[in-house]
Amino acid sequence: MPATSSMRATVSVLACFCAAAAAAAPRIVCDRPALDFGERDEGETVHAEFVLRNVGDAPLRIDRLRPACGCTVATLDQPLLAPGSQTVVRVDFTLRGRQGPQSKSVTVQSDDPQTPYLTLWLNGIVTRELALDPPYVNFGSLAPDAVVEREVRLVSRRPEIVITNVVSDHPRIAVAGGGVPASGARSFALTTVPPLEPGQTRATVTVLTDHPSKAALRVFAVAYVPPAVRVLPAEVLLQRSAAAPVARTVVLYPGAASNFQVLGIDNPLPGVQVACQPASGGSYRLDIRDLRPAPEFDGCVIRVRTDLPTRPDIEIPIRLID
């Protein structure tokens, strides 16, 4: 009996010891996981430090730092922390090209069983000493005769800086008022100048200021005029290696012209049948049959005649491909 009691006591002590050993674990803590860098200029780089502590009762191993993007670089002083010790995560956030409120994160991956992923945050506002708002002007989808204006403002922490001249490189997107703003101006308007060609019209607008080191800024502008009729596909492609005649379908959809009529088809391809019939939504379907990859067909054009004064002829080219 005494021997049995002694063995039970020994087992009990060992069980308590094992339980205590099993409970030992690291624990990662950051007292300030979010830092605010305030308002900074876009040319700067923010440097921040986060202190990490191991408040557990076992060594802590930090395996990895994962910044949210390439503009943020994070380094670690010490990856192994004994209980009660600390280390520093140093974060560099490059502000170049950024503007407005910013929030960047760095994820700390460790062997803490309760918090294997700890997120550190760097928050603040990036300002520019000199900028244009908006930096990009989109006039959207317009009719060819549309006259639309969009305002662009000069944004600067220095109220004395003003615009001295504005120049556009495209005659269809011009500066309202001729380009030379009134004395002390900090804004101007871009305007479309009809007639606008179908498709995209792009302009680069140069804005001159009296800033001593940033005298020239640029704003990009674009306007889009949909075609009167959309042709899908825009061309008929034939494989040179095709052994047998093939058929192709081309659909004419209403674009800027909501209604149009097909008056006739000019088909220069001998032996090829072209049938045109109305389809849904005001569109027309062209069924082209008995197409052959003959060399004389390469570069030929099927011409569709319409009642549209802006696009009386729609050309559908034939092209041979390998």
Rank of each mutant, 00 (worst) to 15 (best):
P2V: 03
A3W: 08
A3E: 15
S5N: 11
M7I: 03
M7W: 10
M7C: 13
V13R: 15
C18A: 15
C18F: 10
A20S: 14
A23G: 09
A25I: 03
I28V: 12
C30M: 04
D31F: 13
L35N: 03
D36T: 07
G38H: 12
E42M: 11
E44C: 08
T45D: 13
T45I: 04
V46Y: 05
V46D: 09
A48I: 00
F50L: 05
V51M: 09
G56H: 05
D57N: 15
D57I: 05
R61Y: 11
R66M: 09
P79N: 07
L80T: 14
L80E: 15
A82R: 11
Q86P: 08
Q86Y: 07
T94V: 11
R98T: 00
Q102N: 04
Q102L: 03
V108R: 05
S110L: 02
T115G: 08
P116N: 06
L118P: 05
W121N: 11
N123D: 10
A131K: 10
S141N: 13
L142R: 02
A143F: 09
A146G: 07
R150F: 02
L154S: 05
L154Y: 01
S156W: 00
E160S: 12
V162F: 06
T164A: 09
N165T: 00
N165A: 09
V167P: 09
S168E: 00
H170K: 00
R172Q: 06
A176W: 03
A176Y: 02
G177E: 04
G178C: 09
G179R: 07
S183T: 01
S183C: 05
S183I: 00
G184R: 06
F188A: 01
A189D: 14
A189L: 11
A189F: 12
T191R: 14
T192H: 02
E197H: 05
E197Y: 00
Q200F: 06
T204R: 12
P212N: 02
S213F: 03
K214C: 05
K214T: 00
K214H: 08
A215P: 02
R218K: 06
R218C: 02
Y224S: 08
P227L: 01
A228V: 04
L232V: 15
V236N: 11
L237H: 12
L237Q: 14
L238W: 05
Q239L: 13
P245R: 01
V250T: 12
V251T: 10
Y253D: 09
Y253C: 06
P254T: 05
A256M: 14
S258P: 06
Q261F: 04
L263Y: 09
L269E: 11
C276G: 14
Q277C: 05
P278C: 01
G281T: 04
G281I: 00
G281W: 03
G282Q: 02
D287E: 14
I288V: 12
D290G: 10
R292M: 06
A294E: 06
E296H: 07
C300G: 12
V301D: 15
V301M: 12
I302F: 05
R303T: 10
R303L: 06
T306S: 12
L308G: 02
I314H: 07
E315G: 15
R319W: 00
L320M: 11
L320P: 13
L320F: 11
D322H: 08
D322T: 04
